[in-house]
Simulated scan of single mutants.
Amino acid sequence: MNFFDSSVKRAASRRGHRLAAGMIALALAFPVVAAEYIAIPGGAYQSVLPTADTPLDVIIKPMSMRAEPVTNAEFLAFVRSHPQWRRDKVAGVFAESRYLDHWMGDQSISDAQARQPIVKVSWFAAQAYCESEDARLPSWHEWEYVAAADETHRDARNDPAWRNRILGWYSKTSNGDPEWVGGAPNAYGVRDLHGLVWEWVDDFNALFVSADNRNQGDPDLLKFCGAGALSMQDRDNYAVLMRIAMLSSLKGADVTGNVGFRCVRPDQETTP
């Protein structure tokens, strides 16, 4: 800690501004570091989830994706600079009552939470955070494209060992706080797409699970008939079905203890 930081803290304490001193200490304890974005080359691949316009083959444009999920410390810095997203001020239409209720206070977290991925955050809040970084939430297909990679291959979906490892995590009950971010990078250099938390995607409300295949003609939704659609393409990828079912069950203001997010930035050269 430098002389200036020490002096400010002493002055705040002498004036009896305990809140000010606490906020200064928090800022020093959890310094905000510029987020690392990884360049993701574009490409074509076969999605397990067809859309009305894209039955199987999907083209992903080049983009940059956050290397890690957004952490509690990063989201804390965001709500301090955007107070409308504090849990004591956020509008109910944008976040339900459990929003950020795992934090110690409206603007405080524990040391242990600093490097944990943010959870109990609504889709609206996640999107607002990404916009503060000149980014957005990834689409389902963008997330799926990058998440198909293991540590050495950009598409490991045909590797039974990798699929079993992913399924093993998805099948576990989510109890307690998540682990810290910082897992092994995949072939793109992106970490923690699996094994830590589920993640919001931009078009989560279009991941529609329908038991009635007569609804398949609706052009406004991504529709598939449960296991039937997966059986046409990738019936062994049950972990993906679990994620789609989870996201499709949520509303934009919902929060859960196991859903976080990360952001993407479109490649500027390919953006109109």
Rank of each mutant, 00 (worst) to 15 (best):
H141V: 08
A52Q: 09
V146R: 01
T173H: 01
A229Y: 03
E269H: 08
E144L: 14
A77H: 09
R18T: 15
E68R: 12
A125S: 02
L221N: 08
W85K: 03
G217P: 09
A20Q: 08
C225K: 10
D177H: 04
L207F: 00
N72K: 01
A21N: 13
E36G: 00
V79K: 00
V33H: 05
L222F: 07
V93M: 06
I109S: 01
W123F: 04
A34S: 14
E36Q: 03
A11D: 08
V119W: 02
R165T: 05
A149M: 13
G217A: 14
G226A: 07
A161T: 08
A126C: 07
D192S: 05
N258R: 07
Q127E: 07
D236R: 01
V181W: 01
Q84F: 04
V79S: 00
V8Y: 00
S210K: 02
W162A: 14
I60Y: 00
R14K: 11
E133Y: 02
S248F: 00
D203S: 01
Y99I: 07
P62Y: 05
G92H: 10
W200H: 04
P117F: 02
E142L: 15
T54C: 09
L56G: 12
D57F: 02
M246Y: 12
A114E: 05
G217V: 06
L193F: 06
Q233M: 04
K61H: 14
Q116G: 01
S171F: 03
P55Y: 01
